[in-house]
């Protein structure tokens, strides 16, 4: 755990997982397959369409709220089962549900979240749907992906000076 005086502001640096050296990781093909399922779900749930995001932010349909609530329900149930039965991952690792780093005022979550929201309202796609749209043949989304990489890069540049 990081102490309150730690200078580290990036909760993602131990991006990692619970996996430790010496254990075999599951084959990469499983992650490709899981991603493929998710890409199909993004299309079939219509969450990658710009239209549904506009509809959501205009409160004109329950669809997106239902998708998010439905996803939360099964995600929470899955986490409860993992905790309750102390399930281990495929390669026998204890599963640690990663926690988000609390910051005193949560500035990064308020401000970063609002900036993300401005982009979400405009582009109508968050990072997952961006990749799905690329596969769906909306090739101009490449401009948005490069834009998102540019945004990530500028964050990296400004990180030492931004409040968190």
């Amino acid at each position: 755990m990081l102490g309150p005086h730690s200078a580290v502001v990036d909760p993602e640096t131990p991006i990692a997982s619970a996996s430790t050296a010496g254990t075999r990781d599951v084959g990469g093909a499983y992650f490709v397959l899981a991603g493929t399922l998710l890409g199909i779900l993004f299309v079939k749930a219509e969450v990658l369409t710009w239209y549904r995001i506009q509809e959501m932010f205009r409160f004109q349909s329950f669809h997106m709220y239902g998708v998010i609530a439905g996803a939360l329900a099964t995600a929470m149930a899955g986490l409860q089962l993992i905790r309750r039965f102390q399930l281990r991952s495929w390669n026998g690792q204890t599963i640690v549900v990663p926690a988000k780093l609390h910051t005193p005022l949560g500035i990064r979550y308020w401000a970063g979240g609002a900036i993300f929201g401005l982009g979400w309202g405009l582009l109508g796609a968050c990072p997952g749907p961006m990749f799905a749209l690329l596969g769906a043949g909306v090739t101009a989304i490449t401009v948005a992906i490069l834009g998102a990489m540019a945004g990530t890069w500028v964050y990296a540049l400004l990180q030492p000076r931004l409040p968190h």
């Binding site: 990064r108 970063g112 900036i115 982009g119 796609a125 961006m130 401009v143 964050y155």
Partner: peptide
């Protein structure tokens, strides 16, 4: 504006916030 600026804001905002819709709103 939609593609480039929208993408930029999503990229910058999700890193500052430490996650996007999947990382924060779901996980």
């Amino acid at each position: 504006v939609t593609l480039a600026l929208g993408g930029f804001l999503v990229g910058f905002g999700s890193r500052w916030a430490g996650g996007c819709t999947s990382g924060h709103a779901i996980s």
